[in-house]
């Protein structure tokens, strides 16, 4: 079984979300989370350490995903394209509509669903990142001042997290595949930034640009922006691990978990780094600089020239000079 490592796993099955929320406020909750995280890291580390090309499922789940809920969510939201058994579907000419999900792993499901790419709305060259549908929306606002509203929002958020977890668990048990990285694996403060920069420039910048601003690809595809704060370290890790859409897979022998963490550290530090030289002009290089040079530079100079030549000295007259 695949299991994610978020801190409220243990008490999930069969317990109402209200109680989870209540438990999270207990004095011992913090210690429990740390313990659970440590256990999960140990378990996942055991899963990563074998020399496999793909990060295989770490079957050390100590709390199981609610597979019934996962199955139900799958049937409601995914099966119409991916097929009732997640085997993928084809149109009448045999052209694939949606790929098989057997073996894609929990990491892939978590990435696609938490970024809102799945369930897809319009089939196109590439599924855009968007606000997830309400059942999977973990980014909802919870900082309401009214307690009832806040509680309701937190409840909804917890349910969304559980839903993604259940769905990932359901897909993972169908065919295995890479699991969701632990919070420790994706912790940007623990990565080697200098190494990350080197790896990023060699492997990622060619599509995502040197500061992760994204870029155009062929066939209407594109490399998305990584510089916005809603791209979480977990999603970066999962993207490298599973290679969604046009992205290649960077498995654990191409980029070791340590390398992946370094890349995450580089990206997070780069996007949080203030621009030393003033306004960053979109951090896309000379195109925006040229635009500013012409519009602002030449523009201001022309305005100054018009102003200066419009000024007429009071006493002196114009002269003729042959």
């Amino acid at each position: 079984m695949i299991r994610p490592t978020s801190n409220d796993d243990k008490t999930r099955t069969g317990i109402s979300v209200k109680r989870i929320t209540a438990w999270r406020r207990r004095p011992w909750a913090g210690y429990a989370v740390v313990l659970a995280a440590l256990a999960a890291i140990a378990g996942l580390y055991a899963g990563f350490s074998p020399k496999t090309d793909r990060a295989e499922a770490a079957g050390t789940a100590d709390a199981q995903a609610d597979l019934a809920n996962g199955r139900q969510l799958f049937n409601q939201n995914c099966a119409s394209c991916h097929g009732l058994n997640a085997e993928g579907t084809k149109d009448a000419k045999g052209k694939p509509i949606a790929p098989s999900l057997l073996g894609v792993g929990a990491a892939s499901v978590d990435f696609q669903v938490s970024t809102g790419r799945m369930p897809a709305m319009n089939p196109g060259a590439q599924m855009p990142r968007k606000r997830p549908i309400p059942v999977f929306d973990t980014e909802i606002k919870t900082d309401y001042s009214e307690p009832e509203k806040r509680e309701a929002a937190e409840k909804q958020k917890a349910q969304a997290e559980k839903n993604i977890h259940d769905l990932s668990g359901y897909i993972a048990q169908l065919g295995g595949g890479p699991s969701i990285p632990t919070a420790d694996q994706v912790d940007p403060t623990k990565g080697d930034v200098a190494l990350g920069g080197k790896l990023f420039r060699t492997n990622c910048a060619q599509c995502h640009n040197f500061t992760g601003q994204g870029g155009a690809l062929t066939g209407g595809k594109y490399a998305p922006e990584l510089s916005k704060s809603d791209v979480t370290p977990t999603q970066m890790y999962e993207a490298m691990l599973t290679g969604p859409q046009a992205m290649p897979v960077f498995n654990d022998s191409t980029l070791t978990p340590k390398d992946k963490q370094a890349v995450i550290a580089y990206l997070v530090q780069t996007r949080e780094e203030p621009n030393a030289g003033g306004n960053g002009l979109g951090r896309i290089g000379p195109v925006s600089e040229g635009l500013v040079g012409w519009l602002v530079g030449v523009g201001l100079m022309v305005a100054a020239a018009m102003w200066i030549t419009a000024k007429k000295p009071k006493k002196l007259k114009k002269l003729k000079n042959s």
Binding site: R201, Q206, G214, T270, N275, A276, L281, G285
Partner: peptide, 22 residues
């Protein structure tokens, strides 16, 4: 207005390239 932020580009490496290299 920041221009030519060489620290963001990184050192030259013949094996590396950025999209939007103009």
């Amino acid at each position: 207005a920041q221009i030519n932020p060489i620290w963001l580009f990184g050192p030259y490496d013949p094996g590396a390239i950025s999209s939007g290299s103009q």
